[in-house]
Amino acid sequence: MSDTMKDEDEISRMLAGLKAVESPDNFEGGVRSRIAVRRDEASLSRPSLLLAAKFAFPMLLLLAIGGSLILFNERELSGDLVPPVGDGSLDVAVIEGPGSGPTDISSSPNVNSPLAQVPVNRGVGNSRAVSQGGSEDIGLSSDDSTVFPDGVDPRKAIVANGKPPGEGSISPVDVLSMIGISTNCSATGCAVTSVRDGSIAAAAGIESGDLISAIDDRPLNSSRGITGKFTVSELTIVRSGKRMTVSIARR
């Protein structure tokens, strides 16, 4: 064996002869304490960060959507409604499309009519019901900018509040008045006494002396009001003994 190898063996023996140290008695307890502390730290920090990262985007998205909805609704509610005028005693809802309907109720010659007191939505939305009672949105829209003297466009929709007949109905006289016709109703229909110049009825060719027997296939009867949701898009009249249908044309 060479000297070098002998020296190496000697060194190796010296090292192997060193007394081994042992870990202290509380060694394992110390390790477990550290593990517990690290675990607590991890449970406090990681999940919160992960949760924040995981839900930040969806939460922001929801907030953005919710915020825009709230803003949109507030704008609609605050700026687009005409407050009711008069005592609002007429128990109907009027549903209007964008850009349609009267622009100046107070200028109407029939402003004292009960129908003139119906609040009207001039909003930009598709439609909105304004009523003391219930309403129904039939989603009509129209580009017609006709000014209706009585403040409503009966061609759109009128809802008689959904109440039982007699309680929530509108009289045929009032309905026809909305399109400019003054009538005298009886059991057989409503006789036209006058047609207001420039009204939609005049444009449709309704004349004094006509007997209006039905509105949109609803037979007229002075003793019974019109209930439910209805429009006035055509009138059935009797003129000179002839029965004919007149469409309420747009101007």
Binding site: V21, S23, E28
Partner: peptide, 19 residues
């Protein structure tokens, strides 16, 4: 625990740090 403590003690020559 004892082999690792001994290894680190011989490496660092410091018992407390080794533990």
């Amino acid at each position: 625990k004892n082999p690792i403590t001994n290894f680190l003690y011989r490496f660092l020559n410091d018992y407390e740090e080794a533990v």
